[in-house]
Design a protein around this nucleic acid. Structure first.
Length: 442
DNA sequence: TCTGGGGTCCTACCTCGG
DNA sequence: TCTGCCGAGGTAGGACCC
């Protein structure tokens, strides 16, 4: 999908179509998740600090991500892909590999191109959004083709032309070559894919290590035999929070770690998994990041066990000077728990914890908000609302006790009117996202 | 300018047991 | 009994991806 989050927001909000839209964290330490192509013209791109984006594109619309909406659209698109083949490998919400041969929907370049064209039309019909298609004989090449096809295009790399096409391009075009590897190669005088091939496998392994070196050399020769894998079990579950202001108080740090451990276990349980290794992540005031981990005797999904392990790990970490980020994760995932293997000794305790998790889930609020009294309703930029008198709209901004709403829906033909309310206006309520396309209920 | 969140994979180093 | 080798598993950190 092209500039996925930003495109979804433009489809949902007619007044933003054709405008610069930036989706990401809006706090003082937020970064850009996705920028619309209009915003990219100003130099805004993913992973850029929000402050910098605002300086480059002060008139853009800045919105927080709405993952529920994106997940729904993603499911629609993945459904279309599964009609083409049983072998669909999602990479993220907006990207997937499809083995067309396995689905017997394409057998040569011509049939593949026809499938690609039809798919793009179907995606537009069902979601109202544009997607790009890359067609090639391997995953690596298909990915490169789809990147080159963006936005709103289709590119087929004919068999036999791969090396000629890749050769003159920058090493950065190869998946797995980021800033660090790119720099490393540049210092060794290697700037293009052809130069990787010329350098030879031994030199690549010497520069980058066995696995990375061999893999990169193979890719430079356009060799990639990796199959499309439909079902892939996740290997870890983690949650982390970056704080607007560094935390110095050790007691508060402990509390936050406990909170994160609970949230992590909630996610673990929702996935019906358990885990054996608990990982604590701490990013300090100077951005130095360290992790500490502890492997238990068996997998667990008991919040108390994960909380205690995380607390033990924290005791070994110096947080004087302040922390900007804390995280808790669990890896070594399994489908059963250590507790299952023994008698029901801890049954009462874990049932209680499960009840708590369900309660938190039912309120739809993060754990931290469950425990506290509601103070003031928060209106997040970009979120859908409904006003008893004016109908459906979305939050354009809020602050100083006021919230500004634009009243329009995905199907509005013209940008809607803007009105401002008090943040505690009883006629204003949060609302679910509306369908982006007419007649297609989600 | 000042750097998110949720993942995966790889490497280096250490310890332990055979 | 001591020493070295080797593999497995644990731990920490780094790079990368979307």
């Amino acid at each position: 999908m092209d500039a996925f989050y930003a495109s979804a927001e433009q489809a949902a909000k007619p007044s933003l179509r054709g405008k610069a839209v930036v989706v990401g964290g809006l706090g003082p330490r937020g970064v850009v998740a996705t920028a619309s192509y209009e915003a990219r013209k100003f130099g805004v791109h993913s992973a850029m600090p929000m402050g910098q984006a605002r300086r480059l594109a002060p008139n853009a619309a800045y919105l927080v991500p709405r993952f529920r909406l994106y997940r729904e659209i993603s499911e629609q698109v993945m459904g279309l892909l599964r009609e083409l083949s049983p072998l669909v490998e999602p990479l993220s919400l907006d990207e997937a590999f499809v083995d067309l041969e396995a689905g017997e929907t394409a057998w040569d370049a011509r049939s593949a191109e026809a499938v690609g064209l039809r798919l793009r039309a179907d995606i537009r019909r069902v979601t109202g959004l544009s997607g790009s298609v890359g067609l090639a004989v391997s995953k690596m090449l298909a990915k490169i083709a789809s990147e080159e096809a963006k936005p709103d295009g289709l590119l087929l790399i004919p068999q036999g032309t791969e090396r000629g096409l890749l050769g003159p391009k920058s090493v950065r075009i190869l998946p797995g070559v980021g800033p660090a590897t790119g720099d490393h190669l540049r210092r060794a005088g290697i700037n293009t894919v052809a130069e990787i091939a010329e350098a030879g496998e031994d030199e690549l392994v010497r520069l980058l290590g066995k696995a990375h070196g061999s893999h990169l050399y193979a890719m430079a020769l356009a060799r990639d035999e990796r199959p499309v894998v439909a079902e892939r079990d996740s290997k870890s579950v983690s949650v982390e929070d970056t704080y607007d202001v560094d935390i110095h108080d050790r007691v508060r740090v402990r509390t936050e770690v406990q909170r994160l451990a609970d949230r992590c276990v909630e996610r673990l349980r929702a996935a019906e998994r358990s885990g054996r290794t608990v990982v604590l992540k701490v990013r300090r005031y100077d951005f130095s990041t360290l992790t500490r981990s502890e492997t238990l005797r068996g997998p667990t999904d008991d919040p108390a066990v994960v909380r205690e392990a995380a607390a033990r790990l924290l005791e070994g970490v110096d947080t004087t000077g302040g922390v900007r980020l804390l995280g808790v994760g669990v890896s070594g995932l399994a489908d059963f728990t250590q507790e299952d293997l023994f008698a029901q000794a801890a049954a009462a305790a874990s049932e209680e914890a499960a009840a708590e998790a369900v309660e938190a889930e039912e309120t739809g609020a993060p754990a931290e908000e469950v425990a506290e009294e509601p103070v003031e309703r928060r209106w997040m930029a970009g979120h859908d609302v409904r006003h008893a008198e004016f109908g459906p709209g979305w939050v354009q901004g809020s602050g100083l006790g006021r919230v500004t709403v634009r009243f329009e829906t995905p199907l509005s033909e013209r940008p809607g009117r803007v009105r401002t309310f008090s943040v505690d206006d009883p006629l204003l309520e949060p609302a679910d996202p509306l369908p982006l396309v007419e007649g297609l209920a989600r």
